[in-house]
Every structure is written in C-alpha cells, then in structure tokens.
Design a protein around this nucleic acid. Sequence first.
RNA 1: GCCCAGGUGGCGAAAUAGGUAGACGCGUUGGACUUAAAAUCCAAUUCCAGCAAUGGAGUAUCAGUUCGAUUCUGAUCCUGGGUACCA
Length: 823
Amino acid sequence: MAYNHHEIEEKWQKRWTEDSLFSVDVNKLDDKYYVLVMFPYPSGDKLHMGHWYQYGVMDTWTRYQRMNGKKVFFPMGFDAFGLPAENFAIKHGIHPKESTTKNANYMMNQFKKMGVSYNFDYALDTSKEDYYKWTQWVFLELFKNGLAYKKEAPVNWCNSCQTVLANEQVKDGACERCDSSVIQKNLNQWFLKITEYADKLLSNLDSLDWPHKTLAMQKHWIGKSTGTEIEFKVDKLDIDFKVFTTRPDTLHGCTYVTFAPEHPEVLNFVSDSQREAVLDYIEQTKKVSEVDRLTVSDQKTGVFTGAYAINPINQEKVPIWISDYVLFSYGTGAVMAVPAHDERDFDFANAFDLPIRQVIVKKGESEGTLDKAFTDAGEMIHSKKYDGLSSLDVKKQITDDLQAMNKGEAKVNFRLRDWLISRQRYWGSPIPIIHCDDCGSVPVPEDQLPITLPENVEFKPMGESPLKACDSFMNVECPQCKKPALREADTLDTFMCSSWYYLRFPNVGNNDQAFEQGITDKMMPVDKYVGGPEHACMHLLYARFVNMVMKDLGHTIHEEPFTSLTHQGMILGSDGQKMSKSKGNSVSPDGYVEDYGSDILRLYLCFGFSYVDGGPWDDSGIKSMSKFVDRVARLLEDQKHVFGVSDAFGDDLNSDEKKLLFVYNNSLKGVTTDVVKFQFNTSIARIMELYNAVSDYLKAVDPDKQNQAVLSFVLKNLVVILSPFLPHICEEWWETLGQSKSVSLEVWPEVNEKFLELDEIQMAVMINGKVREQIKVAKDSDDDTVFAAAVKSTKVQGYLEGMNIVKKIHVKGKLLNLILKKA
RNA sequence: GCCCAGGUGGCGAAAUAGGUAGACGCGUUGGACUUAAAAUCCAAUUCCAGCAAUGGAGUAUCAGUUCGAUUCUGAUCCUGGGUACCA
C-alpha cells in the first residue's frame, strides 16, 4: 500500500471539493459548533512553519470534532490591512492592494494544499470593500452612540512607523511591530471609549473558559483599583483639587501633595518666587518623557511650587510639589503623599528632606524609625479619633466621614485607557467622518458607505496621513449643511478590522448588512477560539469590547464572543529563538511538504511538540513519522485479506485476542480524551501502541490461528482513528480497503469498557516503600488474598526474614506496601 | 521590583483526587538480513557499581507532611511570559 503523496494529496483535495464534503450552509445549520483560528496576515513570507502548526494541527482537531457528530463551522480569512504591506509597497513600488491580494491568493492555495477542511465559501478579506464597508459601519455605530470621540491628547508616536499607537501596542516603551522606541506627542486623535466597558470586561472574565494566564493578563491590564477621591484646598486661594488614593486610612500621614508636572492647575497656584523653577522642571520633564520616563528610578526629582494645600481631615497645611513620578493620565493627576506608607513617596521625601509621619504600626508594636515605607495594614496612631483602630476598618470610616463633610467619596479607577484608533497611514479603512467648519465631525450617511480607499495615492509616510494629499478624496460636501468640507484623513487601526470579523464570517456575502441578527445569534458565540498568546491584551480585549457594544446596541444577543480559548505554542528556530528573517533561523514548511507530504508534516507537528508549549524546530523526528506511516501501510497491505471478512466477532476470545482488544480500546480511549485537550502528542503515542500491539499479535499467533474478524475490526478502526491526523493517506487506504464513502464521514468509534477490565492484574509489592517484587493476582482480590500471593514469593520471603510486619497497605489493583521492623 | 507559568534521561516529551517515574518517539549500542550499503526486523538503553543476579541514587536545591511525594506545604535558585512609579 505504498503511496505517492503528491498524487493522493491532489486526488483527495479535489474529491473533497467536488463532493463539498466539509461545506455547510449556515442557514440550515442548527446546533452549530463554531471553530475559529485567528486569521493570518497575508505577508510576503506566505505560510510559514508557525502557520502550519497553528492551522494544520487545528484542522486535525476540527476533523475529530466533526467525526464526533459536531456540526462544525470552520471559516478562514485574511487580516489584510496593515503596515507590512504598505512598507513593502514603499520599498518595492508595488501597490499594497496588489501585493496583499497576491499573497492572500497564494496562501489560500497553500491552505488547500495543506488539506484543511475550512468552509472556503465563507472566506473574507478585511481589505476588500465588501468587508471594510461594514468595519466603517461598526465605527459609525460606536460614534452614533457616543463611544467614539476625538480629543487632543498625548499619544504614543512611533517614528519608524510614522503613526500613533494604542497603549496596548507599546511594549517596554517600544513599538510592538517594529521595536523602535516610542515617544509622546500631543495630537488630535480618534478614541473608542473602551473604558466605559472596563467593569464588564473585567467581571465577565470569570465566566470564560480561557487560559488562566490570559485571564490574569487582561485582569491586570484593566487594572481596577478601589479607593477614595479626596478633595483638598489650596491655601489662601480659591482652588480645590482632588487626589485619588487606595489608602484613605493613611490620610493623617500626608505630609505633602504632589502634582504631575503637566497638570494645568499647577500654573494657577504656583508662587511667584517658584514660578521659574517650576516652569523649568515642566520643560525638563517634557524632554525626559521623550527619552525614557519609562525607566523607573529610585532617584526622584521634583520642585516645590511655593503653594500649600489644606488636608481636609485635620486642616493641616502641607506643601505642594510637582514631580514626574506622578502621572497626569492616571487618577486625578495629583496625589496625597504619605511617605511613611508608600515607597515612592518615601523615596521622594528622603530626596527632598520632607517630613515622614507614621500613622500605622504593626499590631502590638510601637513606632520606630522606618528604613523603608510600611505598606501593610495595622493599627492606627497619630490619627486622632481613629487611633487604636485597625487600618482596614478605617479605610471605610474615613471615606464615610469625608463624604459627610462633602470632601470625598469612594471611587474606582482603571488602568485601562481608551483605545486610540487613528492611524496616519494609507493601507487601512478610511474613517467615515467628514469635518465641517460649521457642523463639526459629521458621520458619513450609511447609504454612502463604503468610503473607498483611493488607489492613486503617494503613500510615503510623512508624519500625517497620505490621504491628506489626495484632493479628490479629501474634498467633499458636508452631509448636513452641504458646504465644502474635508474627509477624515486618518485610517483605522487594523485591530478594528479584527475586532468583529467573527461576526461577519457567518454573514459573508450579505451585502445589505454587516451581520444579520437571526444568523448571528444562532452562530455565535465562537465555541473554540485558537490563536497566539501575544493577543491577550490587544485583539482579545478589543474584540470583547466591540462585541459587547454590538450586544448593547441590540445587534446580537451574546455578550462574550469567545466561550473557550486555547493558545497554541510557538515554533522557534532550531537555536531556540523566535523565528525571524533577520536572525536567519526561519524554517519553511514547503520543502518538507515536497519531500514527505502534507500529512507527514502535520503528523510530526502533532507528535513532536506539546501543542500549547511549542518549542524549537528539529526535523530529526519527521523521518520517523514517515517510517511509522510506512509501517502501518505495510501492515494493511499484509493483512489485506482480512478486510473482506466480517468484523463481527463473538464472545469466545482467547487471551491473545483479549489482549489485542484491550490495547485497542485503551488506545482509543486515550485518543478520544486527549485530542479534545489538545494533547496530540499523547494521542499519537496511543495509536503507535495500538500498531505495536497488532504487530505483536501477528508475531505471537500462527497465521492460520489469527482471528480475522478481530483483525478486520481493529485495523479498520485504526484507519478511522488515524484519519484526522493523516487525512489524505487515510482516505486512500480506506478506499483501497474497499470502502466507498470518505473516511471522514465515519463516526468516531466507541470505547468498549468490557475489554478494559482484565481478569488478572499485575501488582507491585513494596517493602518499606520500595518496589521489590511484581505479582499477578485476580482482579478485585481482597487484602488477604493479595498478601498471601505476595508472601509466596521467595524474594519477599527474603525480606521478611527476621522482621515483623508493622503495617500492610493495600491499594486495590495497584500495590501492596509492607512496613517492616526488626524483630 | 511585582504578577503568572515552568524546571523530569543524551534529545522531544509522558505520568499529578499522592500509589510501580521516564509511556510514545528520536538518538545511541549490539544483533539478524545483505557481496556491501540503504531500507527492514530483533534486543538493550535514567545514572553509578557489577559478568550477572542484584544493590544504591534519582523529577532544579533544601527542609516538612505521609507507609508512600514529580504531584501537597514552606524557603531558595534558575528559565520563560506579562507589567513597569497606576497612588
């Protein structure tokens, strides 16, 4: 049963398409099972080994689900807008539309050659008008409901990409895409109010079947913190300001107040004598922030403003400073400094000789000199009426008291910031807004969508959107007052495209709506979503947000888009480093597909790694996959004669046959439970055990005594079980064995527990916790029987000599442990 | 610094409601077949000692709980991921 992988791959791919074997019609699909793998970017690198790992192995998983009766919807598309195509265009002078279309077509072809069972009828491309028309619609829905707004704000600017970035797209102060350093710029940009959904984004996490790690990352990224907002007054001036603190219990220990340097209020109370120093410092931080305000240093800097604040709890007058350790963008941009109980305040107070007053001590201890801030809870001191109380209780009391005085209230703050979606780049969806001098930002009427991206544009990055230079695009009339107006020139962050694509898939081809509620409510949520962990705080957060908004606007009934999430691991270069062109360690799958075939590469990717971990690429194992498949092929060839025989066998089985059926059922059980858990490596190990058992049986039993019915049964099912892992080869085998229907239409076999119960079991005999002997006993033997069997062994007797048995521990079916002591 | 994972043979990895550590595979070694090689088949393979039977050690390190710990508890070290003054 030798095979030519080129021929059979082509043959079966063609057959699958002709017979529409994996096609579904979402209109007729009830009780759906929506499987989605994060769609790729159509880059010039085509499908690389990582893609194969992600898409090939997930296809196996999906084929398995289908054979288990799931009515699978498994679409695929391209996240085609984005910087790489644009940069490629700038470098080589090929239009992004041309290069992405070419790459997408090529990659789609690769998918087909891979033999994946996608619903190709539902493919989409985010850079095509029939898709981005609706991305623009999604934006307008947000805009019309007050969730999109434009504001002047300090934003992250990547000089190399010549565009702004959302907070999530900045990693360690560097651009997530190109790794060059990010600076701050004040610009007027579009934001989406994701912060309005912070609470729901956080609380819903508990209901998701997602990796613990990812939930933790999102939780941390959202960063909810519960505290108190306290109103201070500037001494001698009619200025009030608020500070946010999670430790209102330390309010009596506040010995100064610090403002962020860019806080506009500062200029209203700075004293004349300090004005110059303050302005200097503000200038200085502007410069520093452009270099690396990101690096945390213990060396605190700051300047006294000459003004004083009045602490509302005790009317105490404390100095107001400015320092860059206070962030303008978080809380109120000003903090009450309690050096005794906050590490940053402590460092600052020491640097500038400010007083440190301890107001909490460890319970039962008295006040001492602090060599660092005491941040734990404890017992109140120097806090007037609160003295002696537990600081934990005082948090609430003091907040209540402040509220009664109208000087404060409980407040929740989030670390999450609004999502910046403007990009000063060409290759993205235009933002459907028209700027009119009289009417302001006017949404493009829905019937005018899509705002088509013009093709004849000079798209060299110049710090502002290339569309700005395209007069025919820019000049329009205002939809409201009909006066001349200008289009928004920025394009949408590509994360906007991928934030709703799962809603579009079941609706591909619908030209009247982004998604039809009847279909969407039926098809959503995605039952299994798979993709890389690098999207934990970007795509996965944005998608949840957009879906939530769509639900609140009544377009869908599901609040969470992805019920269950799994991250595949990453295939690294053989040097253990992330594969990249610049490191020269990337590995192409194409050569292996050519030499061994798509099935063998897929099998190796399943077997050689644990799926969620990934690991360095090493091709020394791929040959062994090929050898294994050859062995199975030879076995089937040798046993060809049994396939004409009925596979019905009776109860009259000898021990060899029972043994074979034990391994068969045990392997099947293992594969059945492991595949759903993404443990493809152990699944294949179980199948190899089955092969070994068959081969042992054939060696142990004379050919004329071999039970052909049992063999026929086991071998047929071996092909069935292998088929999700080797889709083409198994189809070919299945056909050769005389089957007329596709093997992928077979129902996954059921485990027969009867054969997993053995009459006689092997047990370990331990002496003082060490395994010394193996005995065989009937199953369900009681303590005495097992003990009797154990002491029959001369080896055990040797250990017992001159010893007393102190204790016997019998774990049924597993072991007997004898605890001995010298007599 | 903080948070979260993880550390098991020469290698990829299995096994955790506490119960025979190393399944399955790679590699290596020996053997069969062959004029020879490849392919295939058989056997061995955690380490140390021993011809062997066998004995001892062993799941990052050190303690602890237990008849019994890769699994539970505490401390330490290392690797990876996240985060970076969030008040």
